[in-house]
Design a protein around this nucleic acid. Structure first.
Lengths: 346, 346
DNA sequence: CTGAAAGCGCTTACAG
DNA sequence: CTGAAAGCGCTTACAG
């Protein structure tokens, strides 16, 4: 059990108040007394932090801001790969760097899906940078007892850092169109963001007289992992009776790079060459773990910047709780890779 | 600001005590009153967790255990790759799975190197599973205000889950010896564990009349990343005047797989074929990120198990603070890969 | 320069 | 069944 100011006071024959003043470097403590107090406190291993709960409670009483200098990164770190090059890892890197600037610590909770982390429920963090799970976004159960900034997902009355998914997808679509593709297919989850990307692709290809008809679209509620991507590819191929000799579409766009890489592996297993038989594009520019193969054509999201900007918005929010919610839209960039080829007309 | 029991009580015209009883499902509250209280509490968004600090403080007063049901994973997640296949990621996976069994949450702090995370200093976690940094192990500044279990590093009076590094290295050494190698070299950090592995290798090769002399050893204080490995390889080659036509040693053992892979890349760049010109072995069996190439010969550490066992030890420690510290030694296993070849004698 | 009082929110006894 | 008191550790006024 930790030592308290009261115990130090009794040990030294002074009042607890004097101990408090000495430890907090307040004036009006005789230098000799202060020195002695600090000495004993140090020797006994006194730590103000260890009795942090008391201070928090006291501050409440006075309506003083009870800041912890800790923020929470609520990302999907158990969900997919998590390192400096992954989607989540790159956002986290940005958060960490900006937090360091603000002299904040970051904690990452490992939590049952969709649960509010205890450190957040207990307000042991000042706020959070959070990427919602699709289920959360759908359910609308997203309230937290601390301010937070949403990454990627649009949330009413919450600060948001995102990208223009539709515009980014238009870049990809235009790239495909420029290569001569007119019939495009799409696979992805059945989410708001997925529909935005689909719409962007569609706009771009329609602008040149092509199409991305619903018959060339395969969606699954929470697609994202290897298996669901394989399922989607199989469904799409079956539904459209696609084969290298019969091509209802000549380019396939996936919701993100992770799915694009999984799709490429599966397509190749099924004997469909990428990009010779089928051009393939992704979205986001995050390198899936262990993938050192063909560079996927994509629209890149500045993920580290997303993390830093979200953290900056959180700081503004904490400083000025009443400020109007801000929506920051970062730029995507087309990054042509090796998976898209000009359409060869026979 | 969160609503308090007192506020609810005033709202309902009952005492704060009655509110407390109702919220905690205590008996002796009239059913009608309880229902009404729960209704209003729910509507006002009352949360006991939000006033967690008060409860912690109160428990202190009564000497009651103030458990948080949260533990801290103090691993090196910013240091090297961090995903389900990396060294740290695999330990974390084990911790997470075991914590779930105990119905604990895990938080990972991102912290300036060697600092004690605020959540730990504030005792907002019940304990920690921790892998020390080499500097910490050297400095001896390792005290925490909560119980913790050390992973890999031996620490006096602290529960430890580790492996027999020397025995594991003997397995590697014996494997090299069985392939005919008699002169072995070693690169690694200059740490206790590194010296144990070196010694194990040496014992094995000496047992068959070979050697791993100090002249074939290159150490660097905190080696581990790509650059330091390259430096160590270069130093070793220079010091021993190694070339494919002049081989003072025929096998190189690295401190861990991460270094082994980095060494392999660099050796190949320098025109030294692995394993044709030089056999190469690692230690730990953790796959470095993005590495899908040659499988490295190694002695594997059961990293997930390290995580689960450390978490179990932490649970025992929390349940019984006075129990004698335990040292659990897990088994390593030789995993022959494609980087070691039989010695070809001319 | 020093100290006693107040109060944050909570639950456990202790009284009705 | 219901409530008033006590006390966890801390700092801010308020008195000496």
């Amino acid at each position: 059990m930790e030592v308290t100011q009261k115990e130090l006071a009794e040990l030294l024959g002074v009042s607890q108040m004097t101990v408090s003043r000495a430890l907090n470097n307040h004036p009006h403590v005789e230098e000799k007394v202060r020195a002695r107090i600090l000495e004993v406190a140090n020797q006994k291993g006194y730590s103000l932090e260890a009795n942090h709960a008391a201070e928090m409670l006291r501050r409440r009483g006075r309506g003083e801001p009870a800041t912890t200098h800790v923020i929470c990164a609520m990302l999907h770190l158990k969900h997919d790969a998590n390192d400096d090059e992954s989607f989540q890892g790159r956002i986290l890197k940005g958060v960490g760097e900006q937090a360091r600037e603000f002299k904040w610590e970051v904690v990452i909770p490992i939590v049952t899906r969709l649960a509010i982390p205890l450190v957040v429920a207990r307000k042991q963090v000042d706020g959070a940078v959070r990427m919602l799970h699709q289920e959360e976004a759908d359910s609308g159960h997203i309230a937290l007892p601390v301010p937070w900034v949403s990454v990627l997902f649009d949330v009413p009355n919450v600060d948001v850092v995102t990208v223009d998914n539709q515009a980014g997808a238009r870049l990809v679509g235009r790239h495909l169109a420029d290569l001569g593709h007119r019939q495009i297919a799409f696979i992805g989850p059945d989410s708001t963001i997925s529909h935005l990307r689909l719409e962007g692709l569609r706009q771009a290809v329609r602008a040149v007289g092509g199409d991305l008809p619903d018959s060339h679209v395969c969606l699954q509620p929470y697609a994202g992992n290897e298996e669901s991507t394989i399922d989607l590819v199989d469904s799409l191929l079956k539904k459209t009776a696609f084969s290298p000799s019969h091509k209802p579409f000549t380019a396939l766009a996936a919701y993100n790079d992770h799915m694009a890489v999984a799709a490429m592996r599966h397509l190749r297993l099924r004997g469909i060459r990428v990009p010779e038989d089928l051009s393939l594009a992704g979205f986001d520019g995050a390198t899936p773990r262990g993938f050192r193969g063909t560079q996927v054509t994509t629209a890149t999201i500045p993920l580290e910047k997303m993390g830093t900007e979200a953290t900056k918005l959180l700081e503004l929010r904490l400083k000025e709780p009443k400020r109007p919610p801000q929506r920051l839209v970062l730029e995507t960039e087309l990054r042509p890779g090796e998976t898209t080829w000009p359409l060869v007309t026979k």
